[in-house]
Measured scan of single mutants.
Amino acid sequence: GIQEIVAMSPELDTYSITKRVKEVLTDNNLGQRLFGESILGLTQGSVSDLLSRPKPWHKLSLKGREPFVRMQLWLNDPHNVEKLRDMKK
């Protein structure tokens, strides 16, 4: 599951990941809330907090790293936007 992926993950640049996620969401007119609930399993508040103030990787616990790994996996998925759009319906 995701825990193994997080444990094996190389250090991620949390700042550039969140910046990229925000760009993709904005460009495709997708909400942070939808993204947070569907992709990260987080509430709106947690998501906007994460996206606006990402902590550096080395300061995060494994649990804290999980959303960033999920974001990275989502960014790597060529169908990420379509999938999210489908969830919106």
Rank of each mutant, 00 (worst) to 15 (best):
G1K: 15
G1L: 08
I2Y: 10
Q3V: 06
Q3A: 08
Q3N: 14
Q3T: 10
E4L: 04
E4T: 09
I5G: 09
V6K: 09
A7C: 07
M8C: 14
S9W: 05
S9K: 07
S9G: 09
S9F: 07
S9C: 11
P10C: 07
P10S: 11
E11H: 10
L12D: 02
D13F: 01
T14S: 01
Y15G: 11
S16R: 11
S16K: 14
T18M: 02
K19T: 10
K19F: 04
V21Q: 01
K22I: 12
E23D: 09
E23K: 15
E23V: 06
V24G: 00
L25G: 01
L25M: 02
L25E: 04
T26C: 14
T26M: 10
T26W: 09
D27N: 15
D27K: 12
D27R: 15
D27W: 08
N28P: 04
N29C: 14
N29Q: 13
L30E: 02
Q32P: 07
Q32F: 15
R33N: 13
R33G: 14
R33E: 10
R33V: 14
L34V: 07
L34N: 06
L34C: 07
F35Y: 03
E37A: 08
E37N: 13
I39F: 03
L40A: 02
G41H: 15
G41T: 04
L42F: 05
L42I: 14
T43E: 14
T43G: 12
T43Y: 14
Q44C: 12
Q44I: 10
G45T: 13
G45W: 08
G45C: 09
G45I: 07
S46M: 13
V47F: 15
S48T: 14
D49A: 11
L51T: 01
L51D: 03
S52C: 10
S52P: 11
S52V: 06
P54Q: 04
K55S: 12
K55I: 06
W57D: 00
W57M: 00
W57V: 01
H58V: 11
K59N: 11
L60Y: 11
L60M: 03
L60E: 03
S61L: 03
L62Q: 15
L62A: 13
L62M: 15
L62H: 08
R65G: 02
R65W: 00
E66D: 06
R70M: 06
M71N: 02
Q72N: 15
Q72T: 05
L73P: 03
L73A: 13
L73Q: 15
W74K: 01
L75S: 01
L75F: 00
N76Q: 09
N76V: 07
N76Y: 05
N76H: 12
D77Q: 05
D77K: 04
D77L: 02
D77N: 05
P78N: 05
V81K: 03
V81E: 00
E82Q: 13
K83E: 09
L84V: 07
L84Q: 04
R85M: 15
D86A: 14
D86E: 13
K88H: 08
K88E: 12
K88V: 08
K88T: 09
K89N: 08
